[in-house]
Design a protein around this nucleic acid. Structure first.
Length: 217
DNA sequence: GCGACAG
DNA sequence: ATCTTGTCGC
């Protein structure tokens, strides 16, 4: 699971990579039966110099923790909105390599297609690993949407430049919606369904929560 | 020029 | 992301 392209040193190089790789994104279901779902998260401490990635693998649909791994690496890119993947993907790849068995699906902490160039973190990780991925973000990055119904499962398309790039999804009645978008090898309706089935009790899916927990402490 | 801006 | 306790509400 090595990086398959040179890591950019400039925004211009990063844009070129995004524009090249985005054509490789598969926006339809191409995943086997999901038995293992992973959550990934990256954290930082006092300095930005070191990125710590955590991956947790849960059984699906019963959501029991099966495996976990962490990895630290030198932070390879600054945080610039629109280029988060260049910062977080290297550490995530290292953590994934430590797993005994690859998950069937990965829920990423960030956007997928809901990105200015349609190539957010979830798309990037999916293309590099060939694993199905979904972007699950706590806040909106791009796009607009109508008000979301108050009940769990309600959602509204997230639209940008006339395209549906994701969904604002209410995972629990009365809580703020989250932003779901395609990463790789899954369509939006299925992505919403997987996220809902991983978020039975809290706003964020259990995958994200368990990975966060590994990062924080 | 002025805001907005995943983590 | 990170710095950080208690507190209001179901």
């Amino acid at each position: 699971m090595q990086q398959q392209h040179p890591w950019p040193q400039t925004i211009e190089e990063a844009i070129a990579i995004q524009e090249q790789l985005r054509s490789l994104v598969i926006a339809e279901n191409q995943l086997s039966t999901v038995r293992y779902v992973a959550g990934v998260d990256v954290g930082y401490h006092s300095s930005d110099a070191v990125s710590q990635a955590a991956v947790t693998v849960l059984s699906f649909p019963d959501l029991q923790l099966q495996q976990q791994a962490t990895a630290c690496s030198v932070t390879a890119f600054p945080y610039v909105p629109g280029f988060l993947s260049f910062r977080e993907v290297p550490a995530v790849l290292q953590a994934l390599e430590k797993l005994d068995q690859m998950p069937d699906l990965i829920l990423c902490d960030g956007q997928g297609l809901a990105h200015p160039r349609r190539f957010g973190l979830a798309c990037h990780l999916g293309v590099l690993t060939s694993i199905a991925t979904i972007g699950v973000a706590k806040t909106r990055f791009i796009g607009e949407h109508s008000d979301v119904g108050l009940e769990r499962g309600s959602w509204q398309p997230l639209q940008d430049c006339g395209q549906t790039v994701g969904a604002a999804l209410r995972t629990q009645t009365g809580v703020k919606p989250i932003y779901v978008s395609i990463g790789h090898k899954v369509n939006l309706v299925s992505a919403i369904d997987y996220v809902l089935r991983c978020a039975l009790k809290y706003r964020l899916p259990e995958t994200t929560r368990s990975a966060d927990q590994l990062t924080s402490g």
